[in-house]
């Protein structure tokens, strides 16, 4: 492991228990993602892509094995430590945007900052910057339902980057968008990776979307197969 490795998965096993039977998703998964990487994760439905993303984001725990983030294992953190760790290090982007319907775009973007010690004026400045990055500073007061799908996803991206996390995890971020809008979103992720140095792991079904990443990982039957793009 080198200093520049942001994430290292070692011997990860994940088993779901459903009543009596247990389903093994991975039994011995190993993966290293260097800082500044942009990984497109592909694979058939049910292969465990979302499961893996949840493990990387501290939303779920491995059955066994170690997840090192910046060299420190996260799987042993308590629930509340993990919450604080997510707030500080991870930005999430979801297929269906997951914005708060009753809040304005600016308030949605501000949410992660509520967990920091920033003053209201600092928070406001950061929100403005994040909305500028995604080109929506003129829509700050709009509610999600007053925005198009692509605009909503851009608000979600602003929310994901506003607290300046090291890692952005995106699960099918373009799955609900048309081709042109999807391209805009993917270009934006590419920009975040290239210009701002964000490490990104993106799950996608779409080979065209995967081309925006630095490399593709194919997950099938519990193992990876790598292709450089």
């Amino acid at each position: 492991m080198s200093d520049s490795d942001l994430i290292v998965l070692r011997n990860i096993a994940k088993t779901y228990r459903r009543g009596e039977e247990s389903i093994s998703i991975f039994s011995d998964l190993n993966l290293t993602i260097p800082s500044g990487d942009f990984v497109a994760m592909m694979g058939p439905s049910g292969s465990g892509k979302t499961t893996l993303l949840n493990l990387l984001g501290g939303l779920d725990r491995p059955t066994s094995g170690t997840i090192l983030f910046d060299g420190a294992p996260i799987e042993k953190l308590s629930e509340s430590q993990l919450s604080a760790w997510r707030a500080a290090n991870i930005g999430f982007i979801f297929q269906f945007y997951n914005l708060m319907p009753t809040m304005s775009a600016a308030r949605n973007v501000e949410l992660p900052l509520l967990l920091t010690s920033l003053s209201p004026s600092e928070r406001k400045k950061r929100v403005k910057t994040a909305l500028e990055v995604v080109g929506l500073d003129n829509r700050a007061g709009h509610k999600p339902k007053e925005l198009s799908g692509g605009q909503q996803q851009r608000v979600a991206i602003a929310r994901a980057i506003v607290a300046d996390p090291k890692l952005i995890l995106a699960d099918e971020p373009t799955g609900d968008l048309d081709r042109t809008t999807a391209a805009e979103i993917l270009e934006m992720l590419q920009l975040l990776n290239r210009e701002l140095g964000k490490t990104i792991v993106m799950v996608t079904h779409d080979p065209a979307a995967a081309k925006y990443a630095r490399r593709e990982l194919h997950l099938d039957k519990g193992t990876f197969e790598e292709r450089l793009t």
């Binding site: 984001g57 939303l59 919450s83 997510r86 500080a88 979801f94 997951n98 708060m100 967990l115």
Partner: peptide
């Protein structure tokens, strides 16, 4: 529930 889960993911308690 989706909003609450989202807030949890963001780091809310």
């Amino acid at each position: 529930s989706k909003e609450l889960a989202t807030l949890r993911a963001i780091g809310f308690g």
